[in-house]
Write a protein that binds this DNA or RNA. Structure first.
Lengths: 232, 232
DNA sequence: AGGAATTTTTGCGCAGAGTGTAATGTTCAC
DNA sequence: GTGAACATTACACTCTGCGCAAAAATTCCT
């Protein structure tokens, strides 16, 4: 029951074992998100999450290296994929432009995955909103993005053919880009998904390319774009 | 001995109690930095640091809320000061410009404080270099800067008179700025202080204002600027 | 289907981070 | 000097996170 409710239906090409693993992973994530949204990060123990997902506490750590990791994507192999894409996207164009394209695309993927995770996207966003408000978790998210930042910096240095020890530009670009992503994600979550994440990301990078002018339109067309939650 | 070697000499206006507190704080910091530079963050326990500084492990946590906090500035009241300065610096100018001025000034202060901390600035920078290389610590630094980022975002929103819930610009600016600071600091440390931190910061913000062009000169005059504190 | 091989889960123990509390020293103010 | 105020310490406790080996589940082979 605890597992079955998250397993979609049938994916015949994947073994039963794989399906179960995926199901427990999702179950853990979902219950973690749920409990933290209810009580706050500090008042939820790993034991609570494990109990809610109906597995042993030890199993939790077989899936996630830390309590925070269950809340964020914390994806291991995706970082490498990101690295590759940054290297090869739009070969002729400037690095900032390539970065923009890759990260906007990534924003779409993240949005979709969120939809897959839980039943109601609205509920999920509501939880995200609460989660992101916790200062401790904002710090944890920043820490999580430090990994991504490192990979981006590497990829950019390779793309630009410069030595990171001598040229701070790749690292600067990576840090600034992850900063933009962070701000965008937080805004997106705290707005309850009123604006599509990919468009917000695109606007942010537009602002970067324009030198962060004081009066720039960062929000996409204010239409009924998304869940219709927060109206404006 | 453990305390005496860090207490400068005489600051008569401060009570003995205050002097001792400051001395143990510095002692803890220094030994923490030292041990971590030697063995790596993971292989140093709080007990080790406390023992090296000749205090009880419990006392360590009276000074720092976490092991990481002993390595970074982790300053409590400075954030508030930063917030105020961002609010009132250069009233007429754009926010990015004010931010730049405040953070470049802050870079100078940080550089000076590092000099005050330990005996040999060269040794200190060597330690910083090692410390910053640890992935875990890079993550911790990012987490630490999340606090600053929040304060900056608040200050910027107030300065610009916009509602952070509706306008992502202040948060974006704050995230991007802290990103730039992070990249700059890391580069500065890993270069062993070859370039003055304040000038690196200034160049980074120049690049931001210029829209992060591909070929911008981020490094200051490549003279013999090296470790000799910061001459201009 | 039956049994072996593999993988996953789990229980147990352990080291380390971080906190509350109460007792013990140390400094300050009078 | 004496007591108040403050800092340090010991002790006990919870929680995170991991290594290890037994147990349970799943897959594969015949």
């Amino acid at each position: 029951m605890t597992l079955a409710d998250t397993a979609p239906a049938a994916e015949p090409q994947i073994s039963l074992r794989e399906r179960k693993k995926l199901a427990t992973r999702r179950s853990l994530r979902r219950h973690a998100l749920d409990l933290v949204a209810q009580r706050g990060f500090m008042h939820v123990t790993v034991e609570d999450i494990a109990e809610a997902a109906d597995v042993s506490p030890r199993t939790f750590f077989n899936y996630f290296p830390s309590k925070e990791a269950a809340l964020f994507g914390a994806d291991p192999e995706r970082v490498a994929a990101l690295r590759e894409r940054v290297l090869h996207q739009a070969p002729g164009e400037p690095a900032l432009s390539a970065l923009r394209q890759v990260l906007v695309a990534e924003a779409r993927v993240v949005t979709n995955e969120l939809g897959e995770l839980g039943g109601d996207p609205l509920d999920m966003l509501r939880r995200m909103k609460i989660v992101r408000a916790d200062p401790h978790l904002r710090a944890a998210q920043s820490a999580h993005m430090a990994n991504i930042e490192g990979a981006l910096a590497e990829a950019l240095a390779e793309r630009l053919g410069t030595d990171p020890a001598r040229d701070p530009y790749p690292a600067l670009l990576a840090s600034v880009a992850t900063g933009a992503i962070r701000a965008t994600t937080v805004f997106w979550a705290s707005s309850g998904g009123a604006y599509p994440l990919d468009q917000l990301t695109d606007r942010a990078f537009q602002a970067l390319a324009d030198g962060l002018p004081e009066h720039c339109s960062l929000r996409p067309v204010s239409g009924t774009a998304a869940p219709g939650k927060d109206e404006e």
